[in-house]
Nucleic acid binder design. Structure first.
Length: 104
DNA sequence: CGGTTGACCAAGT
DNA sequence: GACTTGGCCAACC
């Protein structure tokens, strides 16, 4: 079945285990494209969520500069969840996010 | 099919 | 270090 670019993003996201994170850029790179924005755009209109049966951890996606980025329920909620997964965050930025990055 | 949008990125000011 | 500009690409109207 052919999927849209967005669907592919979700599939990759599902591969990210708990306690790990990824960046918009990393996803785009994994898809061999430079559509960083399209990835974020896909999440923004995401038909799924981590609460859905798809278990898409949208909250584990952050920006390339280590900043948390946005979230449909607010950045604060996103940070809260990441912390709950064991990822330290400081001033809206992930501490040593590189070592929490999931390599596809 | 052209124009707008966006949970972005990198470089310049 | 904070703000602006240009660029990039898919989805939506």
């Amino acid at each position: 079945m052919k999927q849209t670019f967005s669907q592919r993003c979700y599939s990759l996201l599902k591969q990210v285990p708990r306690g790990k994170i990824t960046t918009y850029k990393a996803i785009a790179n994994a898809l061999h494209t430079k559509a960083y924005r399209a990835v974020g755009n896909a999440m923004n209109k995401n038909p799924f969520s981590f609460s859905d049966g798809g278990n898409v951890p949208c909250h584990r996606v952050i920006k390339s500069n280590g900043e948390v980025g946005g979230f449909f329920s607010g950045t604060a909620a996103k940070i809260k969840m990441l912390k709950a997964e064991g990822i330290p965050i400081k001033n809206n930025k992930v501490v040593d996010f590189e070592k929490y990055l999931y390599q596809f």
